[in-house]
């Protein structure tokens, strides 16, 4: 089963986003902060245990989304994993900065839940179907 890591400090948002991401073929693993997620990502030696997609909230207490993204992109084991940023705003400067740091996409947390579900489903389908899964050489 494909793993999707969700790094999100707000447990309510985590629950709502999980509803949009979880399906028969995908398991959502939730981390409330960047430290615990990086603890796994940077140390895991088995590529098949790595997620196929990381959904990362931009505003996190302590280490923020930009810093976590930077750490993921600078680690040889996990630098190829697509990272989609989650945000409540459409702040151009933040979006540009995240893309410069190697973000794979953006999802704005809409107040309209069906709209949010639609966005999450599209993002998940795209990355799970088109992206090369981690392998031994990854």
């Amino acid at each position: 089963m494909d793993k999707i890591f969700l790094i999100e400090d707000n447990p309510d948002h985590a629950l709502l986003i999980t509803k949009g991401l979880a399906s028969d073929g995908a398991e959502v693993i939730y981390y409330p902060d960047g430290q615990s997620a990086l603890g796994f990502l940077e140390k895991e030696k088995q590529p098949e245990n790595l997620p196929v997609l990381v959904m990362l909230d931009l505003k996190l207490p302590g280490m923020d989304g930009f810093e976590i993204l930077q750490r993921i992109r600078s680690n040889s084991r996990c630098k190829r994993i697509p990272v989609v940023m989650l945000t409540t705003s459409k702040y151009k400067q933040e979006i540009n900065r995240a893309y410069e740091l190697g973000a794979s996409g953006f999802v704005t947390k809409s107040e309209d839940f069906s709209e949010l579900l639609g966005k999450l489903a599209r993002v998940k389908d795209y990355w799970l179907k088109t992206v090369e899964k981690p392998d031994a050489g990854g």
Binding site: D12, H13, L16, T88, S89, K109, E111, F113
Partner: peptide, 17 residues
């Protein structure tokens, strides 16, 4: 405005569910 938006996402999301 940003901080107040987060609970609104939750309220509307759970209301919809």
């Amino acid at each position: 405005s940003h901080d107040l938006k987060a609970p609104l996402v939750s309220i509307q999301g759970f209301a919809s569910i």
